[in-house]
């Protein structure tokens, strides 16, 4: 598949469900990581091919343990990802949204990518099981989800 074909496939995925190829890739990463505790080169290449330029920065975020899975007593969960600048981004568990500028520009405005590096990092942490866990109060969770919490 050439770049043009990939771009077309990305463009039609506008309902934010991940394409089958991406879901399969995460399953493969999960299986391999459970067995060997590493992601082999061929899967890294596939990751770069499917997610383009945000794949490597997302892997860096995973290496730096930047992803935290937050949960509150109500059972509500969310991901919090620390960006390169130290800013915290709250991402939802059931659909794709990130308050970062790349998501607003690349995904929403230009429709050129499936997701940003922060959401991809959250997916990779789920697949590899390396995210930090943190409990917050229900009120703190509400503030984080609505974007009104102090970063």
């Amino acid at each position: 598949m050439n770049r043009g074909a990939l771009k077309h496939e990305v463009a039609v995925m506008s309902d934010f469900t991940l394409p089958d190829v991406a879901q399969q890739l995460f399953r493969d990463i999960q299986k391999t990581y459970q067995e060997t505790s590493q992601i082999p080169d061929e899967l890294l290449i596939a990751l770069k091919f499917v997610f383009g330029p945000c794949a490597l920065p997302a892997l860096d975020l995973v290496d730096q343990r930047s992803v935290t899975c937050l949960s509150s007593p109500s059972g509500r969960k969310a991901f919090q990802v620390m960006g390169g600048s130290g800013r915290l981004y709250t991402c939802f568990v059931s659909c794709h949204y990130c308050p970062c500028p790349a998501f607003a520009y690349t995904v929403l405005r230009r429709n050129e990518g499936l997701l940003c590096k922060h959401i991809l990092a959250a997916y990779l942490c789920q697949a590899t099981g390396v995210s930090q866990q943190e409990s917050v109060s229900d009120q703190q969770m509400s503030a984080l989800l609505s974007g009104t919490a102090a970063p």
């Binding site: 059972g75 229900d138 969770m141 509400s142 503030a143 989800l145 009104t148």
Partner: peptide, 11 residues
């Protein structure tokens, strides 16, 4: 609106 929707999970 975001705050009110976000707090719907609270008991």
């Amino acid at each position: 609106l975001l705050q009110q929707v976000a707090s719907l999970h609270e008991s």
